[in-house]
Design a binder for these strands. Structure first.
Lengths: 142, 142
DNA sequence: GTGTGTGCAAAAGGTTTGCAAGAAA
DNA sequence: TTTCTTGCAAACCTTTTGCACACAC
């Protein structure tokens, strides 16, 4: 069974038609050892550089939104001009390198689990995210 | 001593000319009991609704950036299309209500302090932020 | 007077949308 | 053939920028 057919089955199973574009994006995102952090722009560049393909902006946005909705991608909270996504959808935290604008996974052993003692009345907790912003020592942080 | 003259002195002290616009924005932001969370758009609306004034978009952005640079405002990391600011510049965390798109301060007793066991080599930690996303129980989270 | 700040409008950058053409079921 | 998806361009929204005029010192 090829990688493609695995993705084709998965897509069908979650109710998304396995189009050529979606399968390509799956290959790019999920055929990797390490967690992948990316912006839409990163993804478009990778599609053209690594796969020598061209998938339209609208389709890439559509696909990423669909994958996020289905729980295969996680959106990371950063106050950046761009939206960052993560292929690791488990509960985990991040370092954000302000010099390189890169996200780095925080190992679960690097940080104690967050214990909340109170919640907002009538609300359900959807996520708890920790973001540790770092920069080189000589970085002028404005 | 009026509130205005306090702000005028403060502004001068930190090296910002106390213009009419900056003093107005100070009144709006810092003459309040509670922490204030806002987007630029919120601020502009408040200026026109509560103060019956009009300060240009560019000036509001300039002022907010200047205050942030001087440490009087804090930028909050949320994956929203807008940037959120907080008049509470101390280390503290937030609930983000996905229904109302509002930020709520997390009391320091509501959450244990985060203990980091590891850092990225050669980098300095600039901030550690926790964001707890909440929504009403029947909210369809997409 | 000199340097800084303001305001307007234009530009920029990321994201969304409408719609016609194309592909999957 | 019906429904979903793609791709393009235009629209949208927030934020930034350039520049002339005004204000603070």
């Amino acid at each position: 069974m090829t990688n493609n057919s695995i993705f084709i089955n998965k897509l069908r199973k979650i109710g998304l038609r396995p189009t050529k574009q979606r399968v390509k994006i799956c290959e790019l995102l999920f055929l990797r050892e390490k967690t992948f952090h990316f912006t839409i722009n990163d993804l478009i560049k990778k599609i053209s550089n690594e796969m020598k393909e061209k998938i339209s902006l609208a389709t890439v946005y559509n696909t990423v939104h669909a994958f996020k909705k289905k729980g295969y991608l996680k959106e990371i909270a950063i106050n950046s001009d761009k939206t960052y996504y993560d292929t690791n959808t488990s509960v985990h935290h991040h370092f954000y390198d302000e010099d390189t604008r890169e996200l780095i996974d925080c190992d679960e052993n690097d940080i104690d689990s967050i214990i909340l003692k109170k919640n907002i009345t009538g609300k359900k907790i959807n996520s708890v995210e920790v973001l540790i912003k770092v920069a080189s020592d000589n970085h002028n942080q404005n």
